[in-house]
Write a protein that binds this DNA or RNA. Structure first.
Lengths: 185, 185
DNA sequence: GTCTATAGATCGATAGAC
DNA sequence: GTCTATCGATCTATAGAC
């Protein structure tokens, strides 16, 4: 029977949750060890450069998930309108209506931005570019598509902040519905 | 000649900057001491309950600033349209076009939300309520005013996240201009 | 590969001189 | 009030047994 954690990749979801909940500075190795079920020795075996390498690996995994599940369909789907609608569904599920934090956005607000600035920037740049691509293929003018994409990514981040601050997923839902209407209009 | 720090209040701006830049967990007493010019002994003289009391005092000061500069004018100005326009100006200046983080929003994303949940919630609730009040007095229907206010506060938070993530104040400016248009329309 | 034990630095917080 | 010195706890990271 396969072990729960038999390679580095298997530990990443637990690590991601710790970084999401506690931030980079607040994510101690003790918390990471407890959440992943791995001792410090094992953690340093998988991530020789320590916490920084753990966070970088988590960012890379998140980036891969978004690339596969959101960005590529937005860029390549033959039906861009359906791809945009599906993307809103995926965003709602992934962020659990704002009760789950966007790790990249949280890093952007703190001093982790200095360490992981390139990854943070690239994540949002590709998100906006993929959305804009879908809007253009759906018939919008390039400049308008670009601004609408930026507006939507920005509003998703704001919805996470406000829904969490007020502990009210309905705020996230209302924001998402406004975005859907704007994306279709 | 008056000393630079002669009472607790004088230390708060420096403390606020440290919490903004490093988050609650990342704001060590060594950083706070260096930024404020106060030794640990003095810090504990002003804030006997330590870091938690420092952060609470900072949140209270921020709340007071917003109440005086933004919320009260929005609720009480005889010209609600002008108050809304002035509020956008103040927001732009205060957050330096997104290059300065909203401490309350940053706390909302991390585990500091559990400690300061009431203050975080109240801050955003009063911000939204004050904006909605101005919109109603400017002639909007109550439900629409409430939703527009929520949308704007949400979008300001998203603009800070995205402008910082991409290190581009123009993103903040564009978002603010969209909000101004929506608030006037 | 995974663990325990522990090093060395830094943490939040306190004590006491001045 | 402000400082220095220092406490015990916790931190990241390493070493070495298995």
């Amino acid at each position: 029977m396969a072990r729960v954690v038999s390679e580095r990749k298997d530990a990443l979801p637990a690590l991601a949750e710790v970084f999401r909940e506690h931030g980079f500075a607040g994510a101690s190795l003790a918390l990471i060890s407890a959440a992943s079920g791995l001792g410090k020795g094992s953690l340093y075996h998988f991530f020789p450069r320590g916490k920084e390498e753990m966070a970088a690996a988590v960012l890379e995994e998140i980036d891969g998930w978004f690339e596969t599940r959101l960005f590529r369909p937005l860029r390549e789907s033959p039906d861009p309108g359906a791809a945009v609608a599906a993307a809103f569904e995926d965003v709602d599920a992934y962020f659990r209506s704002g009760q789950r934090v966007c790790l990249v956005g949280a890093f952007a607000l703190g001093d982790a931005r200095d360490r992981f600035g390139t990854a943070v920037n690239a994540y949002f740049a590709r998100w906006i570019a993929a959305l804009a691509d879908a809007f253009i293929r759906a018939g919008r003018a390039s400049a308008q598509a670009q601004e609408l994409a930026e507006e939507i990514v920005l509003e998703i981040q704001g919805a996470i902040v406000l829904a969490r601050a007020m502990n009210d997923p309905a705020i996230f839902q209302r924001a998402l519905n406004r975005m859907r209407a704007r994306a279709q209009g």
